[in-house]
Amino acid sequence: MTKQVPVTISPKRLRREFVKKVKELSGQNLQLCYQCGMCTGNCPAAANMDISPRRIIEMARLGLEEEIADSKTVWICASCLACAVNCPRGFDLAKVMEAIRLLTLRKNIDHVRPEDIPPQERCDLPQIAMVSGLRKFTG
């Protein structure tokens, strides 16, 4: 589940820019998190993630943009808010996940293309799935 991340140090200015954007989009103070791991413990998707929710925060505040972009974690998050309601620091990690997704989607890079969903699936999925999925995975 957990993968070792080789850390490449990008120029300080870029890292600062990334941290600033995540803070702006999420409205969350990244420094609040004290890395207790309650979020990961409560996350129903953690087993499928290559980087745990707790580590995403640590990496986000270090400004490790490329490493986060290489991970599938934010795309596996289901926005279920189990992390947020259980965080002893009142930190809303789901908002950080969304902010990081948006930094990709707003470059007009979609995570799911409707035309790639097999026609049979498209007929089978109820609207609530299609609307929510495309809202989360396309820009």
Binding site: P44, A45, N48, W75, I76, A78, S79, C80, H111, V112, I117, L125, A129, M130, S132, G133, L134, R135, K136, F137
Partner: peptide, 8 residues
């Protein structure tokens, strides 16, 4: 699993 059914 919510909307993950669309991507995974």
């Amino acid at each position: 699993g919510s909307y993950q059914v669309v991507s995974s």
